[in-house]
């Protein structure tokens, strides 16, 4: 990118990021479940322009997913209850992995399961895949009966699944995706870090419900769904800042921050709050190329604020409350 400040000079800026031992071209990801297996977005953006992307959840066996309706729009947000609909590990390896191998951005595979063994099976099979930089451990999905958030809200289960998967992923990065609606998210974050998490991603969606007042039934077939979109952004920024201060900063663990990011300003808020990188989620549904705009916007901000290394922005929340 070039920014003209004076007639005689053009400033260019790169915003590479070190993330759990790998170098990313920039700190912007697309989030799991909102960028498919990458090919779906390629009509709308250059996927290689991203710092990274996280695939849709992969389980050992294909999953049909929940009955419909699976989504409902709310004020500045949406609820989804997809239920890990995915093609399964075998089809992922055969049909999707070859294309992911051609990408130059960092690819993280979101892994999910109903038992620890299922999580481990996916991780083991993909641990040596060159296309993959790392894994995002989904222990915070609110839309499945077994697995998901039932792991993520119980510290002993978080420790068990994280350490088991950590042993399976070999040299790859293990990022643990945290559930946001727990008594103290830092407790869960700490347990994940102690069990071997190389990075943390937060937040997943918030369990929520919409009621049809005519029928007095929940609108979603699954009754509840996960709330995402701009509606959750301020809570997500707060939780990222909390986990950054209480866990991540001290252990040097990077955070992938997400929740309602639509613009560069949103992304920068998360970075200032403590995220080393950010993920664009629901906004991909509305403006599928917006991640590229966000990258450009973050660069412009860095130029404007004279930030030579974006690392200096991470967790730079100004605590001085005087003017």
């Amino acid at each position: 990118m070039t920014v003209s400040r004076f007639w005689f000079m053009e400033e260019t800026v790169d915003i590479p990021v070190d993330f759990a031992g790998i170098r990313l071209a920039n700190p912007v990801f697309t989030a799991s479940g909102t960028s498919g297996y990458a090919d779906e977005l390629s009509d709308f953006m250059d996927v290689n322009a991203l710092g990274g992307l996280v695939t849709k959840s992969i389980t050992v066996k294909p999953r049909k997913g929940n009955a419909t309706p699976r989504i409902v729009e709310t004020d500045s947000g949406m609820l989804n209850a997809i239920g890990w609909a995915n093609i399964g590990l075998d089809a992922f390896v055969e049909e999707k992995l070859p294309a992911l191998d051609k990408l130059s951005c960092a690819v993280f595979v979101n892994i999910a399961g109903e038992t620890i063994d299922e999580y481990v099976a996916v991780a083991e099979r993909l641990a040596t895949a060159e296309a993959i930089a790392g894994f995002e451990l989904n222990i915070s999905c609110p839309n499945v009966e077994l697995g998901g958030i039932s792991f993520g809200t119980d510290p002993s289960q978080v420790a068990a699944v994280t350490s088991a998967v950590k042993r399976a992923v070999g040299e790859k990065i293990l990022m643990v995706k945290l559930p946001p609606a727990v008594t103290d998210i830092s407790v869960i974050a700490q347990v994940a870090v102690d069990a071997g998490a190389d990075a943390l991603s937060l937040v997943n969606t918030f369990t929520a419900m919409v009621v049809d007042i005519e029928t007095r039934k929940p609108v979603l077939a699954n009754k509840t769904g996960g709330l995402s979109g701009p509606a959750i952004k301020p809570i997500a920024v707060y939780l990222v800042n909390k986990v950054y201060n209480e866990v991540a900063k001290g252990f040097g663990i990077p955070i992938l921050g997400m929740g309602g990011i639509r613009t560069a300003s949103d992304a920068i808020e998360f970075i200032i709050a403590g995220a080393s990188a950010v993920a664009v989620g629901t906004a991909n549904f509305i403006e599928p190329g917006c991640a590229v705009k966000i990258i450009e916007g973050v660069k412009e901000y860095c130029v404007r604020k004279n930030i030579a290394n974006i690392k200096d922005l991470v967790g730079s929340l100004n605590q001085d409350l005087t003017d």
Partner: peptide
């Protein structure tokens, strides 16, 4: 017709239950 978030095959919201040929199984 289904409720859709993205329309481009990503969100998996707009599932339609379909029969599988020569099988009692269904897929979305």
């Amino acid at each position: 017709e289904r409720r859709m978030a993205c329309g481009i095959g990503i969100c998996q919201s707009c599932a339609v239950e379909c029969r599988v040929a020569d099988s009692a199984e269904t897929v979305y």
